[in-house]
């Protein structure tokens, strides 16, 4: 990482879906090689915010953005910036596992292929490495050529993580990656996140506060499109500064 201690910085970020404002003046600095959790009640804008970090909101009709998102100190919303290049550097894992209706192998090889890597040997290497990194290799190495749709939900989600690792991203975004999974599959993904953060900064949206407490180093609490509080996870959970944050956290814990 060149200069600057933050990998992603937002400045006065505002976002609208048609007339409805979903993000209001969000300012947030993400540190490298840490796990940052975005928490908050449903509809608070946390998923919207994470989708700003790899310009996935571009895909949604009626979405307008004002403000800045700096990636390596360059604004990724400047007109001449290419969203495709951004997404090659910033991988994403979605709420519901979304493997392509292709084989396990083809799912992982997809990213490298669209970037022009067609060497079979190289692809084999990437597929194996990515599956190892996603802790899935042991389970699927004998059925690489079977359809990914046949995997269990948890396996599908780890496959999607492997898929995003295959393009060697600099950051990994996870949008409620465990919300469609059972507790055992969830535990596996959380272990995986702890592994991944050695090499990648991870930003994770979650509505499960125990999860945020377990896996993250930093936590941001959002409410009604605004960034309420952001700091070290320990501080946020043990000693929140804002009343809103405290209400949310204590309310959930009962």
């Amino acid at each position: 990482m060149s200069k600057g201690e933050y990998i992603i910085e937002t400045k006065d970020l505002n976002l609208w879906y048609n007339e409805k404002q979903a993000l209001i003046d969000v300012n947030l600095n993400i540190k490298p090689n840490k796990v940052t959790a975005l928490i908050g009640p449903s509809g608070c804008g946390k998923s919207t915010l994470i989708r700003c970090f790899n310009r996935m909101n571009d895909v949604i009709p009626g979405c307008k953005i004002k403000g800045h998102v700096y990636y390596h100190n360059k604004d990724m919303y400047e007109p001449k910036v290419d969203a495709v290049e951004i997404r090659k550097k910033i991988g994403m894992v979605f709420q519901k596992p979304n493997p392509f209706p292709k084989s396990v192998y083809e799912n992982i090889a997809y990213g490298p292929r669209v970037q022009g890597i067609n060497n079979k040997k190289k692809l084999d290497e990437i597929v194996e490495k990515s599956l190892h990194a996603a802790a899935l290799w042991e389970e699927v190495n004998d059925r690489l050529n079977e359809s990914a749709i046949g995997l269990s939900g948890g396996q599908q989600q780890r496959l999607c993580i492997a898929r995003s690792l295959a393009i060697e991203p600099e950051i990994i975004l996870m949008d409620e990656p465990c919300s469609a999974l059972d507790p055992i599959a969830t535990a596996k993904i959380e272990d995986l996140i702890n592994e991944l953060k050695k090499n990648y900064p991870v930003i994770i949206v979650t509505h499960n506060m125990q999860q945020a407490a377990r896996v993250s180093d930093y936590t941001a609490y959002m409410y009604l499109g605004k960034m309420i509080e952001y700091g070290e996870t320990k501080k946020i959970f043990e000693n929140p500064k804002e009343e809103l944050t405290e209400n949310y956290i204590t309310g959930r814990f009962g």
Binding site: M56, V84, K88, K89, N98, Y110, V114, Q115, C160, S164
Partner: peptide, 19 residues
């Protein structure tokens, strides 16, 4: 979600459509 999965690994629009 399938399209988003493809776009998120840096595929272009036409690559996503075609593949």
């Amino acid at each position: 979600s399938i399209r988003e999965g493809s776009l998120a690994v840096g595929a272009t629009r036409w690559q996503t459509i075609k593949r």
